[in-house]
Design a protein around this nucleic acid. Structure first.
Lengths: 301, 301
DNA sequence: CCCGATTGTCGCCAATTTGTAGACAGAGAC
DNA sequence: GTCTCTGTCTACAAATTGGCGACAATCGGG
């Protein structure tokens, strides 16, 4: 039992009056929050919360424990701060490499907040889609979006990046809407890749996995280009949701094959193997996890 | 990461100056303690301890953090005590059922300490080897030693109970010493069981698992009897170490087949399914885990 | 008053973490 | 010089975590 996690969950439930809201703020599922609090009550042997089906409020035990928990949690933060601040305030240059699309669409806007939080730091951001070696190419941290975790470098998972199959309404009107992955064989696919071979789409549904060799007419290593070509009605694309999102919302693209899903990509931070991350890198990675990790709209559904 | 576990491990290392000793006191392996402290240092981004290959001492960061960690840990204990003591001081009757051998050899002596710690409690101990239903038979908690976990009742594991194959020196002189489980077929086995069928010994070694149908001459549901008959030279017995221990130490029994091992039994506490354990039962079970869980001599070897 | 949305709990299970065994190299005691 | 004990590391089995989805209950809007 991770008692600290239980304490945080409990405190957040008392603060918000709700397991669901506590879950959203802690980026945990309702069932995880429920289990944490139940576990804490079990270990103490007392009930801490009165629950109805829509609210939770502390009883006498719970109010007492909540007050003490807040003190403990804040003292722990203070202890952590005390030792990390014995080092210099984070300053100096942080050299970041990130993929082009992610860098422009998601990371760039977020960096303003990071810079606000750590005004003494200088950031150098290099956007490229080349595979870089952080040690050799002189970066402190490089971000990557990939399907499989590379175990040859030290990497920290930030967040899954779901993908979506989509096409423009005009394309669908002219060519019909695929209802099953196998229908894709009859459609023009816009596919992502560096090389022109070995690119299959894996889609999974209630009837199992489907490996589709799409009839591709465009193969490019930039998903924004795929999106834009899809918007122009040139075919069906499988691209990350963060790239497709705005076009989907505006109706310029339509998600299809919604009963099937592709394995999500994962955003990783990769950094040189040293005994301890520098404070700069660690703060940056923590910031990424906080900002991009477990999106709020994934909770409580 | 269980930060509280890390804090406790770290604090214990600083107190004792040693990962090994911290492990012994916390009933963790050396590598677990090492990992906990490393993980804490990683999360803080600072080194807390200076290590030689035989000692560990806090550096400036470590000393500061240690002092704060002690405050936090003691406040957490105080918070826990505050809510649990809002209930009555544990008093009243605690009805315990335990197996005969374990009850007489291990549990009985330990109960004195439990009674010292909780003088307001009354204990009723019923030793029997029957399978009892705690709800139906009116016990607050029943202890069981079994090979497989029963999932039909709520049970808390207390500790593994290793078994040993042994015989008297006299028996071995007369019949030779088995060196492989298959040799047991040529020996007289004293076997544990309620019924006279289906009793196989499973012994595992470097060359895999061996299921032996022993040529048993005695089948009894009490391992003390098996021990005593083995001491008298009547055969080979597979019995729990806590039963054989004294006879082994005194040379009246000799452990054999030491490159093979039987799956250990496990001591469980079984109790009625209620939302929360009563304080009495919880204190008793915690006491058992503390007393019998992860034996000290299993640490740091 | 009814219906839809949201709630908290629970069982199941895949994914992840835990924690040990054992190997290794280093330090200290004898 | 040897032996014992140390702390770290890897591999891996066992245990735990945390989400999904089902379920029953509640609340607010129409």
């Amino acid at each position: 039992m991770d008692k600290l996690a239980c304490l945080k969950a409990f405190a957040k439930v008392v603060e918000t009056g709700s397991f669901s809201e506590a879950g959203r703020q802690l980026r945990l599922s309702r069932s995880a929050v429920s289990k944490y609090v139940a576990e804490l009550e079990e270990s103490l042997g007392v009930q801490l919360l009165n629950r109805t089906t829509r609210h939770a409020s502390p009883n006498e035990n719970g109010q007492l424990y909540f007050e003490r928990a807040l003190v403990i949690l804040s003292e722990l933060d203070a202890a952590d701060q005390a030792v990390t601040h014995l080092q210099s305030t984070p300053r100096g240059l942080l050299r970041i490499n990130a993929p082009m699309s992610f860098g422009t669409i998601r990371l760039g806007p977020a960096l303003a907040d990071f810079m606000t939080r750590y005004p003494e730091m200088q950031l150098q951001l290099v956007l490229s889609d080349d595979l870089v070696d952080p040690v050799q190419d002189g970066f402190d941290v490089t971000l990557r979006i990939a399907e499989l975790e590379s175990s040859s470098l030290i990497a920290r998972k930030i967040t899954p990046m779901p993908r979506v199959v989509c096409a423009s309404p005009d394309y669908l009107k002219r060519h019909g809407t695929p209802h099953h992955p196998q229908d894709l064989r009859d459609h023009v696919s816009l596919t992502y890749g560096f090389l022109l071979t070995g690119n299959q789409w894996k889609l999974t549904g209630a009837d199992g996995e489907h490996w589709i060799q799409p009839a591709w007419s465009l193969c490019v290593n930039n998903a924004e280009v795929l999106r834009d070509v899809a918007v122009k009605g040139r075919g069906v694309a499988l691209i990350p949701e963060f790239i497709a999102g705005e076009a989907l919302q505006q109706g310029r693209l339509k998600a299809i094959l919604n009963d099937f899903w592709a394995p999500p990509l994962t955003l990783y931070a990769v950094y040189p193997p040293t005994r301890h991350l520098s404070v700069k890198v660690r703060l940056f990675i923590d910031f990424l996890v906080e900002r991009f990790g477990r999106e709020v709209d994934k909770r409580g559904n």
